[in-house]
Computed example of a mutant assay.
Amino acid sequence: MKRIVIALLAALLYQGSYAQQQIVLKGTIKGDLKGYNKMYIYSRTYHDSAVITNGHYTINIPFKEPVFLMLYPEYIQAQRQMYVPFGILMDKPVTYTVTSDIEKGMSASVVKGSEAVELLQAYTKTKETAWKQVRETLKKEFGQPWMDEKSPRHVEFETRQKALQQEHLVPLLQQLVKQHPNSFAAVFSLGEAREMMSADQQERLYADLSPAMKQTKEAMEFHQFTEGIKNSAVGKKVKNFTLPDEKDQSLSFSQFKGKYVLIDFWASWCSPCRQSFPHMREVFQQYKDQHFDIYSISIDKSKADWLKAVAQENNPWKQALDNINIAGSGFAITGVPTTYLISPDGEILMKEVGFEPDGSGAIEKKLAELFGGAAKPGAKPAAATKTMKAVPMTPMQ
């Protein structure tokens, strides 16, 4: 009990000591901006900008908790140059400096400030070298460093890729956490483990964190995700959970008992999610009278954005906002859209990541098998004619 109290106090001191403070981001950018003198900074829930004067700019950011924000120069947008997203982890209300060169690209920028951002930058470079080894090996063995999901060798390719990640990338992340258990850089990097590490490996990774870091929101959500891997296995029974609907009324999953339920995890900012809804409405209309229902759960961090999207889509099934991280703790969601088909007695039957607009997805085939027939194809936008992959969830939105 004493250890738990100490850990909680440490976490509160870590988070509470920064209340009502701000981050100062000072940037220097070398090169000809061709008159496009703005620097944008953003995340899914934050947007701001600054004017670049004589190669310098300053952005003040209110600090409530650690953030990961992306920098986007106006000249790249104006000249339609290819942009590789460049983000900065800012875990403390201190001054961060960013030194960039137009000719080298934003990804070559040097960031200084807290220990965490500098540690993360060094780790990222080491990781890039490891990824290069993975890609070169895949190219040598398969003729290319990537493979389309519809390729007959895709399963073989994916298995080999995961093995190479275990060999080259997993040890780097394990070393980072073990050597820097009290750094937010270690906590931030945990998200990488969701795709390439087993549940047991993830548990050991979490165990290596310091007591204070274990109590951060990001670390606790990672720990919940590990539990979600176990909870969401096919054949498992869904544990009852309650979320608020768009009218702030409590919606319990037990209300769906006795029906086949398609649980749809989505977000207002997810284009494939929004594009999937017209066809999902067709599926709903076809099967709604056969003990079938759809339940959409949004992972939005902004309630206002979620409510706006709900109103715009006007879907004829129940909606809820995930304010307790059921996406992680119950279903181990790594990207949206992701759907689960649940049996009338609450058993997980299938999982599907992404969306097939032509009705050829595994879950739709199962529905046709259960109820007979197939979803009637309808008019779809040009953007929805091909398989749409899930949009990955970021560690910090």
Results as ranks from 00 to 15, higher is better:
F277D: 05
Q312K: 15
T226W: 02
Y72K: 11
K365C: 06
L169R: 07
T58H: 05
Q144A: 14
I23V: 15
I297H: 10
F184V: 05
V353P: 08
H291G: 09
A332T: 08
E356N: 14
Q133R: 14
R160N: 02
T45S: 14
P272F: 00
S360V: 07
M90P: 10
M213W: 00
K162G: 02
Y96W: 08
P244N: 04
G346C: 02
Q20A: 11
F68E: 03
V117Y: 01
Q121D: 13
Q286E: 08
I52K: 02
Y287I: 10
P278M: 01
Q161I: 00
Q22K: 10
G191D: 12
W266R: 06
Y206F: 15
A108I: 06
K318S: 14
K64D: 13
Q249T: 08
K104V: 05
L71R: 09
P73A: 11
M1C: 07
A327Q: 08
K239W: 01
D293Q: 11
Q312R: 14
F225Y: 05
I52C: 05
Q285I: 01
P381K: 12
F292E: 09
K376P: 06
R204Y: 10
Q20L: 14
K217F: 07
S107V: 13
I342N: 04
P392W: 00
V24K: 13
L341E: 01
T45E: 15
P392I: 00
A304P: 08
E141D: 15
L176Y: 11
K301V: 03
S329V: 02
M393H: 07
M213E: 01
Y75Q: 10
Q312P: 06
V117K: 00
K257N: 08
R274Q: 01
S268T: 03
Y340K: 01
Y340I: 02
E158F: 13
N314I: 07
Y260M: 03
E369G: 09
A116C: 07
R153D: 13
S198N: 03
Q81C: 06
P337E: 02
H180Y: 13
Y36Q: 14
K214C: 10
R204V: 11
G27R: 12
F188M: 05
G330L: 05
M1T: 14
L71F: 12
A332F: 06
R194N: 07
S189Y: 09
T58Y: 05
H168N: 13
L190D: 00
S276E: 07
A332S: 14
M90E: 04
Q285N: 15
Y260G: 01
A50C: 03
Q312T: 12
K303F: 06
N323M: 11
Q15G: 06
A130R: 04
Q179K: 14
G258N: 06
T216G: 10
I59Q: 03
Y123K: 08
K140C: 02
A78Q: 13
P316W: 03
A7K: 07
K214V: 04
E356K: 11
Q79M: 10
Q166F: 01
D148H: 12
V67A: 07
L251Y: 02
V336Q: 10
S250L: 15
G346E: 01
D48L: 03
D200L: 02
